[in-house]
Write a protein that binds this DNA or RNA. Structure first.
Length: 298
DNA sequence: ACGATTATTGCGTTCTT
DNA sequence: AAGAAAACAATAATCGT
């Protein structure tokens, strides 16, 4: 409202010719004394759009179309051949045929494009995470399987791309956390999970638990602790395994706890907070296994 | 959807310097 | 004594099934 009326603000000013009072008259500003037309403003400076949504502020600039969605290859944009029941006979049948063909072509090409999109995303992820090459192949196969099983409905492609990579890591017991993947992925953890759950449920992925020992060397180098500490850490992981401590626990947290315990045994300065930070868990989580580990050693 | 695990936050306690 | 680290507790969020 304020922008659109900026021209009217000149009412406060005076006429450049006779210094008389200015007045609005339609789109023009006119001097009350001499009748001089000071300015003309036929331009509407208001928003060029009007709001079509029911929101309160009315600032949504969308003018047309269905809401855009990520879960469709074309984000919900589409072209369709309409029905016009004024048409009869040959023309009408011809139009129906065109519509049918158009629809089919769209479905085929949609699947095609989804696949291309998914594959490139998978390729990108595998590269960014520096995973072996055959992980890519496997992830792509999985992606395709999920597509053929019709799991894409209502879920995002980005989610399936990242979930495929994650799932392959899981079935091959390659230690990568969801966080690590999401960090490089296009799309968030929720999307990955939705897709992963769907695949796990419908496709019955054979996923085993991840061995915490795999995380130990990574975190060890990240924390810059000596080799002996790292070796001891792995031993502790093995011990924890045997003791059945790591039931349902976050493998990253277990690895961090073992590393921390090892460092403490060797009098290497390493705080819980630091170890936890490297493993992307909280000190509280680390502590959980740390205590159990202590009891084991008494 | 549920039960278990984990995150977060705040705060009195213990250890170090 | 001061400051950091570890411990504890309560509740919110997230995970695995």
């Amino acid at each position: 409202m304020s922008d659109a009326n900026s021209a009217r603000a000149r009412t406060e000013e005076t006429c450049p010719e006779c210094s008389g009072p200015l007045a609005n008259q339609g789109d023009e500003v006119i001097c009350g004394g001499c009748g001089l037309v000071v300015s003309t403003d036929r331009i509407d400076r208001g928003p060029e759009w009007r709001s079509f949504d029911d929101g309160e502020d009315g600032t949504n600039p969308e003018r047309t179309g269905a809401p855009l969605t990520r879960s469709r290859h074309d984000r919900g944009l589409s072209t369709e051949i309409g029905r016009d029941n004024r048409l009869k006979g040959r023309k009408r049948r011809r139009l129906a045929r065109m519509r049918r063909q158009h629809d089919r072509a769209q479905i085929r090409s949609k699947a095609e494009r989804n696949k291309v999109y998914g594959f490139t995303e998978i390729r990108r992820l595998v590269g960014a995470l520096s995973l072996p090459k055959d992980v890519r192949e496997q992830a792509c196969v999985l992606f395709e399987t999920a597509q053929d099983a019709g799991l894409f409905q209502g879920r995002s492609l980005e989610g399936f791309a990242s979930a495929s990579v994650y799932a392959v890591c899981r079935v091959r017991a390659i230690a990568r956390t969801v966080g690590e993947i999401v960090e490089h992925a296009r799309g968030d953890a929720a999307e990955l999970r939705a897709a992963y759950d769907a695949m796990n449920r419908e496709l019955g992925l054979q996923t085993g638990p991840i061995d915490p020992a795999q995380y130990v060397p990574r975190y060890a180098s990240e924390l810059d602790v000596p080799d002996r500490v790292q070796r001891r850490g792995r031993e502790l992981v093995a011990r924890a395994q045997d003791a059945g401590i790591i039931g349902g626990r976050n493998p990253s947290g277990v690895a961090a706890a073992c590393l921390y315990t090892a460092a403490r045994e060797h009098d290497v300065p390493l705080t819980q907070a630091e170890a936890a930070e490297a493993a992307d868990v909280t000190p509280v989580t680390l502590r959980g296994t740390f205590y159990d580990l202590q009891e084991l050693n008494d």
